[in-house]
């Protein structure tokens, strides 16, 4: 994908390591304005880390991330917070505030960033909760929700301030088939009708391919494949084949690096 003025997020030569273990060894990603871009790859390839790097919560060892031309990691705290008002991150765990109700969780960003009257906040919160099918759960506490419900509440909170772009970390995980369809449709609608830019990190190939405009496949700290969903599905590359078809054999090892099983089992410690 070529860099152009319609690029909202530009990740260039990104290097990042955690506890001495390299996570990214020079990745380049461009997220087009108004498009749904999916980041896919095996577990442990740093997909969530990438979202935190884009959000400015982690700092890269090398490389840059530009959002609308602004280098996220060179911004002052005030400007970074101003930029974050334009974005939203749906956490994998939901990350709801546990001491306040579902309603107050969704109202939280509205109360923090606007001076809207309580009556209007109520209407907005109920509308957002209705969109994720949880208006009836407004009075529940986060501890009373299932994992899937908590993530849907987090989604309602993520769209509460109508951000310019949303990063979804595993939005389909833990959803039943009905909720999965609703969340899928919601992401698509938000994208098309409001012109939002979306980044989806997911393992759900079928669902993600159905709504994504462009997919990046990460493995071994690099972008190993990229393209439209149809291109990746048809690709002859061993990376694409293994991941898109869920094959056990291929360039991505199933096992975490370790000595052979025989060596481990026969090794006698003193």
């Amino acid at each position: 994908m070529k860099t152009s003025s319609d690029t909202l997020i530009q990740v260039t030569d990104l290097h990042f390591a955690r506890s001495g273990r390299p996570i990214f060894a020079g990745i380049d990603i461009n997220v087009r304005r108004g498009a749904i871009t999916a980041i896919m790859g095996p577990s442990g390839t740093g997909k969530t880390t990438l979202l935190k790097l884009i959000g400015g919560q982690l700092h890269p060892a090398k490389g840059s991330i530009l959002i609308d031309g602004e280098n996220v990691h060179r911004l002052s705290r005030r400007r970074l917070y101003r930029l974050r008002r334009r974005m939203s991150l749906l956490f994998q765990s939901g990350a709801l505030l546990t001491d306040i109700s579902v309603f107050d969780n969704v109202a939280f960003p509205l109360r923090e960033h606007t001076d809207l009257p309580e009556s209007l906040i109520r209407d907005l919160v109920l509308t957002k909760l209705e969109a994720v099918g949880l208006r009836g759960a407004a009075k529940l506490m986060p501890a009373e929700l299932s994992g899937g419900m908590a993530r849907r509440v987090a989604l309602a909170r993520a769209i509460a301030l109508d951000p310019e772009f949303i990063m979804y970390d595993e939005p389909f995980a833990g959803q039943d088939p009905i909720s999965m369809g609703v969340v899928l449709e919601l992401i698509r609608k938000l994208n098309k009708s409001l012109g939002l830019t979306s980044i989806i990190v997911s393992h759900d190939i079928k669902e993600t391919s159905a709504i994504a405009d462009y997919i990046y496949l990460l493995a071994d700290g690099k972008v190993v494949e990229e393209g439209a969903p149809a291109e990746l599905t048809a690709s002859a590359s061993p990376w694409s084949k293994q991941f898109m078809q869920g094959l056990p054999d291929g360039p991505v090892p199933f096992h975490y690096p370790a000595p052979s099983l025989e060596e481990d089992l026969l090794h006698v410690t003193n």
């Binding site: 917070y81 956490f91 990350a95 923090e112």
Partner: peptide, 21 residues
């Protein structure tokens, strides 16, 4: 516990400074 359950991170991403809030 708020840190362990990513509540402080979520606040940061909502442009709410957890130190002040």
């Amino acid at each position: 516990l708020m840190k362990a359950t990513e509540q402080l991170s979520a606040m940061e991403m909502m442009a709410v400074d957890p130190i002040r809030r």
